[in-house]
């Protein structure tokens, strides 16, 4: 599915953000990319859809070489990559519906987009997604009237309406309070699994990463220093990624949380929804 070969990014300032990073995602899985601030997580994810231009290396998605595409072909390729941002990056002065539909911009003509005449199929999908992320009834609210958690739900819907082949998620929870952060992270992981989408999630919160991801990649100073399952992550590995600190609490809490989540998931009859009672009751008005 996604293959990254010796990706290197050097900024014009001479700062080397990524140094020969290679990564293969061969099936639908939630991959958490952890690492300290400045480790290159954001550059890594932005190189994949070339919001940041890679300096060296190759990126392949479903057999086509992303790094070899001309600008207009790259725009077409980006339609297959859904992205979710730390600051949500919604168009603040547009409505929730316009923001969700903006995920279809690559598929409609300019005038369709400009006059807001999206195909009915897109509109149906937008309503379904809004309901799925817990924002049914919010379609005509302006984005700047929403709370942080609600904005990120819109961000998720905008990425998913693209029907992407991969989700690129950049620190989805850093601007949220701890409880909302957990809910949003759970929602993203669950939707990715539900749709069989591989998701690359940058996250500096180790607890959340270990709780929701099936695979953890550790970045430190532009290099991949760890790639494995969440239960392989121990004190030594966290020290390798982040540096010296007392990691025992973090690991113990994450393990407990993951277990609790698993129990609730098993208890829920249709599987999965048990983890999110908070947003389903809280977001519907």
């Amino acid at each position: 599915m996604l293959q990254v070969d010796k990706l290197t990014k050097t900024y014009p300032t001479g700062q080397k953000a990524l140094d020969a990073c290679s990564l293969k995602v061969e099936k639908s899985q939630v991959v958490a990319v952890i690492g300290p601030s400045g480790a290159g997580k954001s550059s890594f994810i932005r190189c994949i859809n070339r919001l940041v231009e890679p300096t060296e290396g190759q990126i392949w998605l479903d057999g086509s070489e992303v790094t070899a595409l001309a600008p207009d072909q790259m725009a077409k390729m980006r339609r297959h990559m859904g992205m979710i941002f730390q600051e949500y990056n919604l168009v603040e002065r547009l409505t929730v519906m316009e923001n969700v539909l903006s995920g279809r911009l690559g598929f409609v003509s300019f005038w369709q987009a400009f006059l807001r005449k999206f195909p009915q199929a897109d509109i149906d999908r937008a309503f379904d997604l809004l309901e799925r992320v817990g924002l049914a009834g919010y379609e005509n609210n302006r984005a700047d009237a929403l709370s942080g958690g609600q904005r990120q739900r819109v961000g998720i819907a905008r990425a998913l309406i693209q029907e992407p082949k991969i989700l690129l998620v950049d620190e989805p929870t850093s601007s949220l309070d701890p409880k909302t952060a957990r809910t949003i992270m759970g929602l993203i992981a669950e939707l990715a699994r539900e749709r069989g989408l591989p998701a690359l999630i940058n996250i500096h919160d180790v607890g959340l990463a270990l709780m929701f991801a099936e695979r953890v990649v550790g970045l430190s100073e532009g290099r991949i220093v760890f790639d494995g399952a969440p239960d392989e992550v121990d004190e030594q590995i966290l020290t390798r990624i982040f540096g010296e600190a007392d990691w025992r609490q973090t690991i113990r809490h994450a393990a407990e949380d993951a277990e609790a989540l698993e129990r609730r998931r098993a208890a829920a009859p249709d599987g999965g929804d048990g983890a999110e009672p908070a947003w389903q009751s809280g977001a519907a008005r």
Partner: peptide, 23 residues
Amino acid sequence: GQVEAIAATGASRAKVIAYGILP
């Protein structure tokens, strides 16, 4: 950020102006 998000959906330059910049 808003412009970047619209560009990330695969929108052309004109659509980025219409959705990311004009509003």
